[in-house]
């Protein structure tokens, strides 16, 4: 047991090194302050209820005011009926608020998304946040509309580790295109 305890710090250092190396985006000032891209969504209720029809977007991809607004209008959720019973709605709203981007500023993407939105705006879509738009504005439309992707909201189609909260360039593989290099 003692041996294992001795190994743990080394393992953690390894994880941190990998995290820093994977952080290959343009803003290197953030290195050292971030504990990851976006916190992974682990809540089983959230994943079940919000991941049946689309990718279970991490709560840290939108600020709390956006989630609250969304959860109040589930009967018309991007023109779909996504209504839930009261108890589940309340539970998921709490989960989203607690883990929202503005409550997860230690995570690089959460911080950047939060900072990119002006305080008087409440974006309804992750894809409409200024940071997201900036990061995706050079992608040709034909790559997006192809059937393997469909919409910019289909994160996992290109961000192969999106379900693990990893959105680095290294983990991008665009169907029928390959890796994406922003430089």
């Amino acid at each position: 047991m003692k041996k294992i305890l001795l190994i743990v710090p080394f393992l953690l250092t390894g994880v941190l090194l990998v995290a820093v190396m994977a952080d290959d985006d343009e803003d290197h000032r953030s290195i050292g302050r971030s504990i990851g891209d976006v916190a992974v969504s682990k809540d089983a209720t959230y994943i079940k209820e919000c991941g049946s029809c689309h990718f279970a977007y991490q709560p840290g991809l939108l600020p709390k005011r956006s989630w609250v607004k969304m959860m109040n209008t589930l009967d018309n959720h991007f023109k779909d009926d996504a209504s839930l019973d009261q108890k589940t709605t309340k539970y998921i709203t709490n989960y989203l608020v607690k883990n929202s981007s503005d409550n997860a500023m230690d995570y690089k993407r959460s911080r950047k998304i939060t900072n990119s939105i002006s305080v008087n705006q409440t974006p309804h879509r992750i894809t409409k946040t200024p940071y997201f738009i900036h990061k995706h504005d050079e992608i040709p439309k034909k790559i997006i509309v192809q059937k393997e992707v469909g919409t910019l909201g289909n994160c996992i189609a290109c961000h192969t580790a999106a379900d693990r909260g990893i959105y680095s360039e290294r983990a991008i593989k665009i169907p029928n295109y390959g890796r994406w290099d922003d430089d």
Binding site: C53, F55, T151, A157
Partner: peptide
């Protein structure tokens, strides 16, 4: 597949 989001069902 969901006809709008492409998520598998």
């Amino acid at each position: 597949q969901n006809a709008f989001t492409n998520k598998s069902i």
